[in-house]
Design a protein around this nucleic acid. Structure first.
Lengths: 187, 187
DNA sequence: GGAATATGAATGAAGG
DNA sequence: CCTTCATTCATATTCC
């Protein structure tokens, strides 16, 4: 059951299904590989560095085919899903999966949960031509009224864009009506 | 185990047909949009300026809903991930670590000679083949000298970063009218 | 076997 | 620019 390997080139029909591109059989970790990864995760490793990924991948390759990206994705997914599952728990904030974080000094992952949704950079990017509702993840703790003025030149530049598009949309943007044909001379 | 090979999700037919992301949570580029963006990228465009972003966005809007920030992010991500093509090929045969340690190969207590501040995490893996499906090579028209005229503050900011690593590759193609015809014969 | 679930893979979006 | 988070898709596995 652990001899997975390439199951063949299965090009699914999802040509446009967003993030297509899975053309090969995906990596299926063996039990030993999963065990190692689990141990590392339980040890507190969340976002391994490049060298760590290399080492882990190297080590896991002993048990079967594996690439660095697999290790990377594994940690990303595992962390994200562990967190997502935690939301189902009730109170008890003391709940911590990696309580053995100090067992192995792998990497001092500073847990900075300061998720300040400062969209100051791209706040002016919106408003193309219709009401764009920002996909708010939180919806409550995000206060957009905090940024009262652009602080960086970047923002100033973006402001210009917004101004130009909202006021006079008759710039020399497009001379030709956009036909089906693609003429990349609009640059 | 008996994979059908075809998941039945045949969504061929125009724009984001079959697109399940109706939630509109985030932008999901259509095939045509991706094609345009990819062609531009392949043509050498790496960091479009604000005007470029505007025009590209405006052009892409014909194929579907798109905002300027989407174009901006797309180039950022694509460029960054294209760069992560570092070969993670690693000879695991001559690895003493893979044989001596089966538990933790990270660094239990003494193996840390160089501590990277866990900044580079995603720079070790790479896709097997990034060449997705773009059949039109158009003769590898890699026009690196496609960079735009860095006149804006945003470009200047980017220029500062770019200047630190590469030589000043500033060049102005035209200041009067943006000719920059990318004859991408993919029509 | 098909639905439900688990999980690898991809990428948009954002922070710094 | 680099790093990380979030969301989604696709597929392997499990359950019924």
């Amino acid at each position: 059951m652990e001899m997975e390997g390439e199951v063949g080139v299965v090009i699914s029909g999802g040509f446009n299904a967003g993030r297509v591109g899975v053309k090969c059989g995906r990596w299926n970790p063996t039990t030993e590989q999963v065990k190692v990864l689990m141990d590392l995760f339980r040890a507190g490793l969340r976002t391994p560095s490049t060298e760590q990924i290399q080492r882990i991948s190297n080590h896991l390759s002993y048990f079967g085919k594996v690439e660095s990206k697999n290790v990377f994705y594994w940690f990303q997914n595992h962390k994200a899903r562990e967190r997502h599952h935690k939301k189902r728990r009730r109170g008890s904030s003391s709940d911590e999966e990696a309580e053995t974080e100090h067992k192995f000094v792998i990497s001092p992952d500073c847990k900075r949960e300061a998720k300040l949704s400062h969209r100051s950079v791209l706040s002016s990017f919106a408003k193309e031509e219709e009401q764009i509702t920002w996909p708010e993840r939180t919806g409550s703790r995000d206060i957009e009224t905090l940024e009262l003025f652009p602080l960086k030149a970047y923002d100033l530049e973006m402001e210009k864009i917004r101004c130009a598009r909202t006021t006079t949309e008759i710039k020399e943007i497009s001379f030709f009506d956009p036909p089906l044909e693609l003429r990349l001379s609009f640059l």
